[in-house]
Design a protein around this nucleic acid. Structure first.
Lengths: 228, 228
DNA sequence: AACCCTGTTTATCGCTTGATCACTAATTAA
DNA sequence: TTAATTAGTGATCAAGCGATAAACAGGGTT
């Protein structure tokens, strides 16, 4: 390459965005960048990707760490709508149907290279935000699922789900979750139809839950209902 | 702190190990170090942890990357004994029992902070070794499990497991795997008894597999799937 | 004693990193 | 038009990185 050319750079003639918009644009692209490179990725490489010079980042964010924190915020807060709890708890519809629909929607949001990689990078860092996310999944999703399963199986409702029930829901949930990990992080071949994977997983979970926790009657009811 | 003290360091009076042993000692401690810090951890910090100076590492390993590769080797090759395939295929015992025993043993090896963290760090790097590990799990463990399930359910044996069956085994396997992730990476509370978690997961899986792929339910299952 | 071999340290090199400062170009307000 | 404000750049700093070279220390052999 020739030496640094002092050519007056033709500044891109882009419309100037409002400061807040530009900032958010930076955060969005930084998210993609860090998802690929990990948080060890350099600010220079990031700036290059944004098409600006490195010091400019420091006009918008006090430090690299602050930028990273904003990346976390957007990634973690993005997915959680409040419709999901209602969907799971809507007893006018069969639980099986609710579960399948919920996991279609949920995985529709989190199954992306970007989301999953940021999730694991922050998890390995041992960040608080990650731990709190696990808590949210447990309280807003899994506990609700357990409650609905108990109801469906004709078991007495009780305030908090038991530890063993909760664990079983975790195993179920994680099994589905890991489909995305295998596909987007390991880039391993997976069953083409996500829909079928979820459908089978839900069917197996309901049968398994009835088998392990159901009363004899409840279990049979679940099995029969499944078959019909 | 005062300026660098040129005090002649009292060399530690440790027994001199053979070069090969010393090397392995380095690799072992480096594994723990990288498990905590990630592979971005510095060679100086690592050397400090080993109680030696940084350049000494380069007498034992040509570069940091070579050291890391050896870390991978030990971590990935450590677990796989050949007894596991035999255990899974031993038809003199009930499949349920075999599965529970296998997963007790398997998780006994990989459920550690060290193993899991190295696993994810290398996974995020997109390393070949990681992908090959996924292949090994699929071919040596999950395919075998499917075969045994088919046999148990009285289904005709066929060479390769179907994609949907394999996926279901993945969901099951991952569910168990993620118990370790939650415990050692997220450091989230889990069911105290790993044994019960595995036992319930296996019971649920067998019930679920029969439900989804079993012969008797086959026709009805198809109807249900068509209706969804 | 002299020598060599090997494990180890000190000092240092070139490069990259996150961050800062002074300056210029572009936009807005008067 | 001119002044003020904002967006963006080039040069540079101190610290940290991986890696290298040369000197040193201690035991074993002759």
């Amino acid at each position: 390459m020739s030496k640094k050319t002092p050519v007056k750079r033709a500044r891109a003639k882009q419309r100037r965005l409002s400061p807040e918009d530009r900032r958010q644009e930076f955060v969005a692209k930084a998210t993609e960048f860090f998802a690929e490179e990990g948080f060890g990725g350099g600010t220079r490489a990031l700036a290059h990707r944004l098409g600006v010079t490195q010091p400019l980042l420091y006009r918008y964010f006090p430090s690299k760490d602050d930028l990273i924190k904003e990346v976390y915020r957007t990634v973690y807060l993005e997915p959680f709508g409040d419709g999901w709890e209602k969907l799971l708890g809507d007893r006018t519809r069969p639980l099986r149907e609710r579960l399948k629909e919920f996991y279609q929607a949920y995985t529709g949001v989190i199954f992306s290279r970007k989301w999953l990689r940021i999730y694991f990078y922050s998890g390995l860092k041992g960040l608080e935000i990650n731990r709190s996310y696990v808590g949210i999944v447990r309280d807003k999703i899994l506990s609700r699922i357990i409650r609905e399963c108990r109801h469906e199986a004709g078991l007495p409702a009780q305030g908090k789900p038991g530890a063993a029930e909760l664990e079983m829901a975790w195993v179920f949930h994680s099994g589905i979750f890991y489909y995305g990990v295998r596909k987007f992080i390991y880039e391993a071949p997976v069953l083409e139809s996500k829909e079928q994977m979820i459908s089978d997983a839900v069917d197996a979970f309901l049968a398994g839950f009835a088998q392990v926790f159901g009363e004899k009657e409840g279990a049979r009811k679940l099995a029969v209902r499944a078959a019909v």
